[in-house]
């Protein structure tokens, strides 16, 4: 072709490239906006709570497809380095959302430093982990994956493994558009976890007006729970999970237990504030009947023992057996129904 034609072609190509880059740039902008619209948007509280403990509400704004994907991931061993453990290993849904061990065991049989909290009702926690270092469930999901003594992997590895699975890709595509991103995976897991709310516990039914939902012992236990001041910390719909508190406010817990570990320093590890030494997130007691052993160190196997210890260290009182029994009855009545899961592939 002649030189004129070549030059015209060159110019046309440059213009097209320019136009294309503009379009791509604009589309990128659009894509980012739509991405954030996927995420769950919290609301301001509209009413004050009518009681210190209120009934659990089911999670809203959850996309069932995302939840389904999250469920699959929750049980997926590929999230661990040697494909041996999944989230469900330590947060076993059939054993109360945790592993019923004082400390969890990661890959290669490595023992962790702290007791695994339950995944049930975890959406109600103001923060995740005992020291509250994760602000959201999405953040929490990253922790075990990247922890060398837990799952010992990373998102890159996980995504790589997942990409090899065409079935997974199919599943993924139902919830998100490709490519597979860590953000989306975490969001899926978190969405699934948000769906694990134990609704319609006997206590909630009693709160809603069913007078016979719980035993008299439980009613008495609730009253004592309130009057003794336990309710000051174990409050809210989740009966806990809403603030940080020192274990051993009145009596020194660690003096009696001895052998202080890093994990025992609690929130202090994160903030470095002296008054937050030995402060932990107040755990939710909703599933407490299922989540033995208790406390951050998983040192107490019996619920009654936990009640006794709490009363002594936090309140400086010795409860009567009757008190303990009533409070135990009350705590047991807090457990709601474990949600039935859709079978996954």
């Amino acid at each position: 072709m002649t030189q004129t034609n070549k030059s015209s072609l060159l110019l046309a190509t440059i213009l097209i490239l320019l136009a294309a880059s503009f379009v791509w740039y604009w589309w990128q902008q659009q894509a980012q906006i739509s991405q954030s619209q996927i995420l769950y948007s919290p609301q301001l509280p509209t009413e004050d709570p009518i009681a210190p403990i209120t009934p659990l509400q089911p999670a809203t704004n959850l996309d069932p497809k995302v939840v389904s994907l999250g469920q699959q991931l929750f049980f997926d061993n590929r999230l661990s380095q040697d494909n041996s453990i999944s989230c469900a290993t330590c947060h076993n849904l059939q054993t109360g959302g945790d592993d019923n061990m004082p400390k969890s065991v990661g890959i290669h049989g490595q023992v962790g430093p702290i007791n695994a909290p339950t995944v049930f009702n975890s959406a109600y926690n103001i923060r995740q982990f005992w020291d509250g270092r994760a602000q959201t469930l999405e953040e929490q999901a990253e922790g075990p994956i990247h922890n060398p003594i837990e799952m010992g992997s990373n998102w890159q590895e996980v995504i790589y493994k997942l990409k090899l699975d065409p079935q997974f890709i199919q599943q993924y595509k139902t919830a998100f558009s490709l490519p597979i991103t860590a953000e989306n995976l975490a969001f899926a897991i978190a969405s699934f976890e948000r769906s694990l709310v134990l609704l319609d516990s006997p206590f909630d039914q009693w709160l809603k007006g069913d007078a016979d939902a719980i035993s008299d012992a439980a009613k008495r236990g609730y009253e004592k729970f309130t009057n003794y001041g336990c309710i000051a910390c174990h409050q809210g719909a989740a009966v806990g999970g809403g603030l940080f508190e020192k274990i051993g406010t009145l009596n020194d817990y660690f003096a009696d237990r001895d052998n202080i570990t890093q994990a025992d320093l609690g929130r202090f590890n994160l903030t470095g504030e002296e008054d937050q030494r030995h402060e932990f997130k107040v755990p939710s007691l909703r599933a407490v009947s299922m989540t033995a052993p208790y406390f951050h160190d998983g040192s107490v196997w019996q619920l009654s023992d936990a009640i006794t210890k709490m009363a002594w260290y936090q309140l400086g009182i010795e409860l009567t057996p009757e008190d303990i029994h009533d409070i135990e009855a009350f705590l047991i009545s807090l457990a709601g129904k474990v949600p039935a899961l859709e079978p996954t592939q």
């Binding site: 309710i231 409050q235 406010t249 937050q276």
Partner: peptide
């Protein structure tokens, strides 16, 4: 906030108990 909430809880706790 955390500090306030935890102190407030302790205060509440002790008040409840003192009242009891």
């Amino acid at each position: 906030l955390e500090r306030f909430l935890s102190h407030n809880a302790v205060l509440k706790n002790s008040r409840y108990y003192a009242e009891e």
